[in-house]
């Protein structure tokens, strides 16, 4: 037994760093490949005004929702209600502009985010206090929130002309050549990533997901953190709802339908472990990007419409299998490493 602790060899440290980064890097490479192939087959995929804009714009909203979803999944929970939250807040946005003409845009944003946060709080409270698995609770609220949305909307729909031009411009406008929506999504991503990496409460989310019982023994405030994660997810879905209205102009009662599955898929593809404790919002955001970009490029590559969903499914299963293989390999390696330093 050695009696002095020496700094471990650097290569190992950077080795682990690489391995952790490898997941995000891998997704980024896959994304670039998809874009390159699609562009080679049809240059307008990137090299046209609309092509370039759509490339950046289409995944932006899902990115925002996927970041929130990743925060929840990291705590070993899941939020199935985000699609319905997007729908409700998108309709609220339109309603506010119609019913309160001249309402400041900022207030609409705050209202959307606030409603999302409230719906997230309901999810979180049910999960944290009722001790029922999040899968069941949020499956319930998925239907409840959507039901409220349908009852409220009826056959009504919000049209682009109902909303002020300044607001609509947010959805289509650009800043130094980059869509404003994309910039917003990236800001959300950077803030969330910084929070998860650098603040105590952010790290505690990982700890809770890694081993909830140990988190309890550590004296971490598990209930409060899980609640906060759901509020964050709801608030981000609320933001996405407002942006949805700005981007598409028309909002009916099925806005955001099925987004929860896309958001979970994005997180999983991006390397966020469904069992909690592992992954980054960077991965989830890249996953969202890859998912939607593949969707857009499949028709170009010549894949039949009918097969697109199957391709997405294969992608998700592939990501999970890859994670499992990598995790097993890393576990073995970590055990071996320990044996060697003995």
């Amino acid at each position: 037994m050695t009696t002095t602790a020496t700094a471990p060899a650097r290569p190992f440290v950077s080795g682990v760093g690489h391995l952790l980064k490898a997941r995000e890097t891998g997704i980024a490479i896959a994304l670039v490949l998809v874009v390159v192939v699609a562009t080679a087959l049809n240059p307008t995929f990137v090299f046209s005004n609309d092509g370039f804009r759509d490339l950046l714009l289409t995944p932006s909203l899902l990115m925002v929702v996927a970041v929130g979803q990743a925060v929840v999944i990291i705590t070993r929970n899941v939020d199935l209600s985000v699609g319905s939250v997007v729908g409700l807040t998108a309709y609220l946005t339109g309603r506010l502009f119609i019913d309160l003409p001249g309402i400041p845009i900022v207030v609409v944003f705050l209202a959307g985010i606030g409603l999302g946060a409230l719906l997230g709080l309901i999810n979180g409270a049910l999960v944290a206090f009722a001790k029922v698995p999040a899968l069941v609770i949020t499956l319930g609220t998925l239907y409840v929130y959507r039901g409220i949305n349908v009852a409220w909307t009826g056959s009504d729909r919000i049209n682009a002309s109902d909303m002020p031009a300044a607001f609509r411009a947010l959805g289509t406008g650009k800043l130094v050549g980059i869509p404003i929506l994309t910039i917003l999504a990236v800001v959300v991503l950077v803030v969330a990533a910084w929070y998860l990496r650098n603040l105590r409460s952010g790290r505690e989310l990982y700890a809770i997901g890694s081993d909830p019982d140990a988190a309890h023994l550590y004296g971490l405030r598990v209930t409060r953190r899980v609640l906060a994660a759901f509020v964050a997810s709801g608030a981000l879905a609320g933001l996405a709802g407002v942006l949805f209205a700005a981007r598409y102009g028309t909002v009916s009662s099925n806005a955001g339908f099925g987004w929860e599955l896309q958001a979970i898929g994005a997180a999983v593809i991006g390397g966020v472990a469904i069992s909690g404790g592992i992954g980054t919002v960077w991965g989830a955001a890249l996953g969202a990007y890859l998912l939607l970009t593949i969707n857009r490029s499949l028709p170009i590559v010549g894949v039949d419409d009918f097969w697109q969903r199957a391709v997405v499914g294969v992608l998700i299963i592939g990501a999970i299998v890859l994670d499992r293989v990598l995790a097993l390999r890393q576990h073995r390696r970590l055990v071996e490493e320990r044996e060697e330093t003995r």
Binding site: R200, E204, G209, S210, D211, L220, G277
Partner: peptide, 26 residues
Amino acid sequence: PTLFPDLSVTENIFMGRQPVGRFGRI
């Protein structure tokens, strides 16, 4: 022992009590 398997040794030691600087940054 009750540790977080996915987190680093250092994080396991300091979880919940990490030294923080400005803006609560660890």
